[in-house]
Design a binder for these strands. Structure first.
Lengths: 199, 199
DNA sequence: TTAAAAAATGAACTATGATTCACTTCTTGG
DNA sequence: CCAAGAAGTGAATCATAGTTCATTTTTTAA
């Protein structure tokens, strides 16, 4: 054999893969996962349909990776907000605020990650995503309970309720309507009431 | 023309339509909307694929009607629970309990109505469904606020948060795990905290 | 310059269900 | 019993993507 992958080529391949992921995410940002078709991606990234399959085994792997990428970023952001110094009460409020602000900034994308009907493979990744979110909130709730800031309660239950409450109020049918910065404040108060804080 | 639709035939047609809807719902109950295919329905109801189209213009109409039927029943049940005599606090608890118990009894069905990825037409009907639920809760919350039982708050926001909280905690990734009757009690308490009751 | 190996291409192929439609069977009133 | 109009049938067709693969182009190192 005479051909060997040289560093510049390896780099180009890595870059192309990145470009594909970026294109794919931008398609999802603009039109949800429904807009992520192999055709559209190939067109957007300026290469052929067949080549997409050189970089991703199949559509599921592609979609799942786009989802995980984006999702990790979101989780990290909220996780950092939840980990600010201070009492659990402020941490929770910061987390909620962070989640809400990000959703406000990119509603279509937030919807795609949280609520859009998607292929089963992505849906499965989404379960993990929600579990991760729930786990983050659960930690803060547990801290709050230990510190006596929050009332006694089932932290896992409250955590998943909070995740659901945030998702529905921000992305649900009504979410679009009364979207304002007041709403974020209201939402923080609501979450604090839910964990039994602020008494 | 010599043929006219006679009463017995009209009745048979109406019954057949009912039978189709029943079959369709049972398919959804067992396997979600994914299991509702024209083929499966025709087989289950013991008639031909073509005949299904004599009773429903297309799949969307069929799926939407199945959804609305079921949904109206659910909304009515929760609506009645929310309208029991007593203070808003008890009403809210009764509504939550009703919702949760019904979801426990038929988890697959509840999931299909609330969270399953579905075709866009059904998804649109689902928006209305959620709006209806939210409206129900909103009323009780407003009553509670007026009566001084609940704290001041944006009733629409809290209502949609409650709907989201219920959906996520009962049907989300964690829902399956810790499903018990204690959980329903916990959930009631959580919802009451959320509306700022019980102080 | 060249031969081997990889990468790129995109038209053809697949898979899954919805939808149609030419044909058969049934129902009705005369 | 008959003719006309409905209702019933299910194989064929359509629609939408995802996936493949024979062919072409590019890259490499001798």
């Amino acid at each position: 054999m005479v051909y060997r992958e040289t560093p510049p080529i390896a780099k180009r391949k890595a870059e192309l893969r990145e470009r594909l992921l970026k294109s794919a995410e931008s398609l999802v940002r603009m039109g949800g996962f429904k807009a992520l078709t192999i055709q559209a991606l190939a067109t957007d990234a300026e290469l052929s349909v067949g080549s997409v399959y050189r970089y991703f085994k199949n559509k599921d792997e592609l979609a799942t990776q786009v989802f995980s990428h984006a999702t990790r970023r979101e989780i990290r952001a909220v996780g950092e907000a939840l980990a600010t110094d201070g009492r659990a009460t402020e941490q929770l409020a910061a987390g909620v605020r962070c989640f809400a602000e990000r959703a406000f900034m990119a509603p279509q994308f937030a919807w795609a990650l949280i609520a859009e009907p998607v292929e089963p493979a992505v849906d499965e990744a989404r379960l993990q995503y929600r579990r991760d979110y729930t786990a983050l909130f659960q930690q803060v709730i547990e801290r709050g309970i230990s510190a006596g800031e929050f009332c006694r309660q089932s932290a896992p239950l409250t955590a998943s309720a909070l995740v659901g409450a945030l998702a529905e109020s921000l992305l649900g049918p009504l979410g679009e309507a009364e979207r304002s910065s007041d709403m974020i404040d209201e939402l923080c108060l609501l979450c604090l009431r839910t964990v039994g804080a602020g008494n």
